[in-house]
Computed example of a mutant assay.
Amino acid sequence: MKSKPNLAEYLKKHWLLVGIFNCIFLASLFPSLGVKEGPLRPEYTVKYGAVSIIFFISGLSLKTDSIYYTLRQHRLHLFIQGFTFVFIPIFIQLLIVALNILGVDAWIIKGLITVACMPPPVSSAVILTKAAQGNETAAIFNSIVGSFLGIIVTPLLLLFNLGFTTVVPLLGTVVQLSVTVLFPLLLGQSLRKFTEFRGHNLPLNGVSQCALLFVIYTTFCDTFHNPDTGLYATDILVTMILVLLIQMFLLLLSFSFAKSLKYFTPADVVCAMFCSTHKSLTLGIPILRIMFHGLSHLSQISLPLLVYHPTQMILGGLLVSNLKDWVNSRRIKKPPV
């Protein structure tokens, strides 16, 4: 009979989740440290530091044959991008019918529509997939593809769902993605291919997850630094409950649907679940500021995305350990492509 794990073993197994809650607690105590233009300068250290480190380590750890295999996983890519850009917007539009009946603020509803049109982020989904021993290579590929698609698809979705759109800074977005994602990824892959350096005894996975924790800390610093949003407490509470329920439903649905498809391995299912349900704050906030600049309702519109971003990381942290155990218990050969 196995003995129950003690507290130290539990904390070691769930250290990422513990780290997430510690980051939230520290951000509530010292929000001014991690805000934009604060002492930690997240506009540089996060955008060009933490994110670049995450993708450099990913490039260094990815095997070339896994990259070739991933490029041929057309059904997985189609599932993720279709769920992100097609299913979620349709689902939110159907949900809005019920929300209108319940009398939810119309501007918060517009914020939910905007969230539904956003592309996936380039860091959190990758790290959570890797932490849960999912298909990291596919997560990287779909995060990058989804971000580039978002430059074109997101404005079109907003035009269709809201009746107007915005101009996404195309050149600036492409340059930023290239500098912070593609270049570090290619640099890590080049080091792996042309040298014998593999990180050796360095805890690369731990470093990646620490970089994600830094992103989470600075995200919550922004949240706690600006508590006066001009919203009623009921608006904030309703938004938090809605976003939480929406994310839980989407995570469960994507997991169940992907698991039911016989050509997806458990690692693919984990990748599909995180990459298809996460939404980008990095691209979303600039779009919102451009679209609704000068409107008194900007706070209501921005609130769903501001809540969605940290919630997806908290829920992901809660699920990582169980998903990792599930993947390890369901190890099977890769299905034919």
Rank of each mutant, 00 (worst) to 15 (best):
T45Q: 08
T218C: 11
V243K: 00
P184K: 02
K13M: 08
D65S: 14
I108K: 01
V115L: 08
G34L: 05
F25E: 11
F249K: 10
Q189P: 01
R330G: 14
V145W: 08
F257W: 15
P336G: 15
V174D: 01
T195N: 09
I151R: 03
I144Y: 13
I241E: 07
P286T: 10
V126A: 03
L204N: 10
I109R: 10
S256W: 08
A106I: 14
P119C: 11
P42D: 03
G188V: 05
D228V: 08
I24K: 01
I127M: 13
P203T: 12
L186I: 13
D228R: 08
L315R: 03
F21N: 04
H309G: 07
F91S: 10
V168N: 06
Q209G: 06
V168Q: 05
H200P: 01
F264C: 05
H14S: 12
S32R: 11
P266V: 03
L78E: 14
L78R: 08
V207L: 13
V167N: 12
A131C: 06
T195Y: 07
L177F: 09
S52K: 04
S32Q: 15
N328F: 08
V122W: 01
I314W: 02
S299E: 10
S28G: 04
I67C: 03
S123R: 01
G206M: 08
Q73Y: 06
H278W: 09
S276K: 04
K13N: 13
S52T: 11
A139R: 03
S302Y: 02
L306Y: 04
W107E: 14
L7W: 13
A131I: 07
P155G: 12
H278N: 12
S52W: 00
K279Q: 14
L99K: 07
K12M: 06
C23K: 00
V153D: 00
D325H: 10
A267Y: 06
L76R: 01
Q73E: 14
L186M: 12
F249V: 13
V104C: 04
I246A: 01
I108W: 03
S28L: 11
I108G: 00
Q209D: 05
E43H: 07
R331T: 14
L156C: 13
T173P: 00
I241M: 14
I152K: 09
V51M: 10
T45N: 12
R331N: 14
P169A: 12
R198S: 13
K324P: 04
L182I: 14
F91V: 07
A106D: 15
G59M: 06
L162C: 06
H293F: 12
V175E: 13
N142K: 02
L156F: 11
Y308S: 06
N161R: 08
T219E: 09
I57A: 02
V215D: 00
K4W: 14
L202F: 12
I216N: 00
K47C: 05
M248I: 15
G34Y: 00
S208F: 04
I290W: 02
I287L: 04
I109S: 03
S280T: 15
I96W: 07
S296Q: 12
V243Y: 02
I332M: 12
